[in-house]
Design a binder for these strands. Structure first.
Lengths: 72, 72
DNA sequence: GTGTGACTGCGAGTCCGTT
DNA sequence: AAACGGACTCGCAGTCACA
C-alpha cells in the first residue's frame, strides 16, 4: 500500500514554493504572517508541527488558501 | 473585502459531513483515527485547535485528504 | 452517542542570540 | 538571507468522570 507522505513535508514544500513565487525571504513572510521568523524556519525544515490556525495565517500572507498549502 | 471564515469552522463542518457520509458515530471515527472520543467531539464543536498531523489522522480515517478537510 | 470541565505533560510559538 | 540553539510562556495533545 502507498505510504502517505508526511503532511509537514507537503506543507514545507508548498510554503517554500509560494514564498519564492512572491520573492519573499523567510523574514518577509514572518512579518507578513505575524509569525516569529525562527518558527517559519522550523516549519520549512519540518521540525515543527503547526496548528491549522497558523497554517491559515501563512495562507493569507501567501495569498493562497489553507487547503492549497496542504495539497500534496 | 470578504472576511475569512475560521479554519476551525471549516474543518468541523467537513469532518462532520465526511463522517456522516460514512455513517460513522464520533466514537466510530475516534476508534478508526485512534483519537480519543472526547477529542473528536471537541474538534467538531470547534473548541480545539488541532495540529496538521491530527488533521491528517482524520483524513486517513475518513478516506479523504488533509487538504479536502480544510477546503471551505 | 455526545457534551463538558478539569487535569497533566509536552510541544506550539516567541524572543534572545550566534554561525 | 537562512540554520540553529537556549530559555521561556502558554496552549495543544491526550485522558477521565460525569451529565
Amino acid at each position: 500500500m502507498a505510504r502517505m507522505e508526511d503532511v509537514r513535508a507537503i506543507l514545507a514544500r508548498n510554503i517554500k514554493a509560494a514564498r519564492k513565487r512572491l520573492n519573499l525571504s523567510q523574514e518577509d513572510l514572518a512579518a507578513r504572517a505575524e509569525i516569529d521568523r525562527t518558527y517559519v524556519s522550523g516549519i520549512e525544515r519540518q521540525v515543527r508541527n503547526p496548528t491549522i490556525t497558523v497554517v491559515a495565517k501563512f495562507a493569507e500572507a501567501l495569498e493562497t488558501t489553507t487547503s492549497d498549502l496542504l495539497t500534496g
